[in-house]
């Protein structure tokens, strides 16, 4: 996908001057391919092979049984809550960081990165300690008959925590590079805050935002550690897809485990494709800008 602009930018002579001998090139490519095949393609193929081992009928049966179906719905529900929330948070945080100067800005940037630095299991534990029966808010929550831990709210919270940096991290460098001039131009022309956001800021960041949303979604659906701590593994109620795979696997139901796993693998493939598409699109946009800027 990067080859299209690269071919325009580098004249053939220059490309030859910096190229390695053919043998080196082939060995390097060979090593990369073998590595990819062993550690990525082979496992991926195994997932699908194992899933379909007992035939297509078993495969679909494993996916449509009520417990699996509940896990699919729970995963989709979690993503449907987490992704929009993190999108709003990411845009707001990135906007504040990139376009304004304020005290504690570097602290905010560090805090946004915190979920990356903390192990997901710890993230889950934090919520158990806060909202669990013996946690800080546990008695109060119990008295008011609100359950967070071992229930859907806990799963959503844990996923929210783990995925919160993804959109913001994607947007901050982009918005910092774009600067404030476009917004200033809009404001001078009479645009009010929301008009500036919808008509100028958002269109400028849309590809970066989409990229961040895709990553956030993939992580939200694939999260295991943090969710595992807060879920309680109640079949049909608090098992997400990843947890369901674990349960099936532990029960030696390999065909079922791999069938559900293949769903997650499929999701990653779709994510990858979408990501590549967005990357290709952004690179094309910036390549056009670069070429025309040189005029």
């Amino acid at each position: 996908m990067a080859s299209a602009p690269a071919e325009i930018a580098i004249p053939p002579a220059a490309a030859r001057a910096t190229a390695e001998p053919a043998l080196v090139r082939r060995v390097l490519i060979g090593v990369a391919l073998v590595f990819l095949g062993l550690f990525l393609l082979l496992p991926l193929a195994t997932v699908f092979a194992q899933a379909l081992e007992r035939g297509v009928a078993t495969y679909f049966a494993a996916l449509t049984e009520p417990v699996a179906w509940a896990a699919i719905k729970l995963t989709l529900l979690t993503a449907a809550i987490v992704v929009p929330l993190n999108t709003v948070f990411g845009v707001a945080a990135a906007w504040a960081i990139a376009k304004f100067e304020f005290r504690g800005k570097s602290l905010l940037i560090t805090l946004i990165d915190l979920p990356f630095a903390v192990s997901p299991v710890i993230a889950g534990l934090i919520y158990v300690l806060l909202f669990g029966m013996r946690g800080w808010f546990g008695p109060w929550l119990g008295a008011h008959d609100i359950q967070i831990i071992f229930a859907v709210p806990g799963i959503v919270l844990a996923t929210l925590f783990v995925t919160c940096p993804l959109v913001a991290r994607e947007l901050i460098p982009l918005m910092q590079a774009q600067g404030r001039e476009d917004e200033e131009a809009a404001v001078v022309l009479g645009a009010r805050g929301w008009q500036t956001f919808w008509r100028v800021t958002l269109p400028n960041i849309k590809w970066g935002l989409l990229y961040g949303v895709i990553l956030c979604n993939a992580r939200a659906m694939g999260e295991f550690g943090a969710v595992s701590v807060v879920s309680g593994h109640i079949r049909g109620l608090t098992n997400t897809l990843t947890l369901h795979v674990e349960v099936l696997y532990n029960e030696y139901n390999f065909a079922g485990a791999f069938a559900v796993a293949s769903l997650l693998a499929l999701l990653s493939l779709v994510t990858l494709a979408a990501r590549s598409l967005v990357e290709w699109k952004t690179q094309r946009v910036s390549a056009v800008e670069r070429v025309t800027d040189e005029h």
Binding site: E181, A185, G190
Partner: peptide, 15 residues
């Protein structure tokens, strides 16, 4: 927004 000035930026700042 209320000053009604036209501002031309060095780097154009076109949308």
């Amino acid at each position: 927004q209320e000053r009604r000035v036209g501002f031309v930026f060095q780097h154009y700042a076109l949308f």
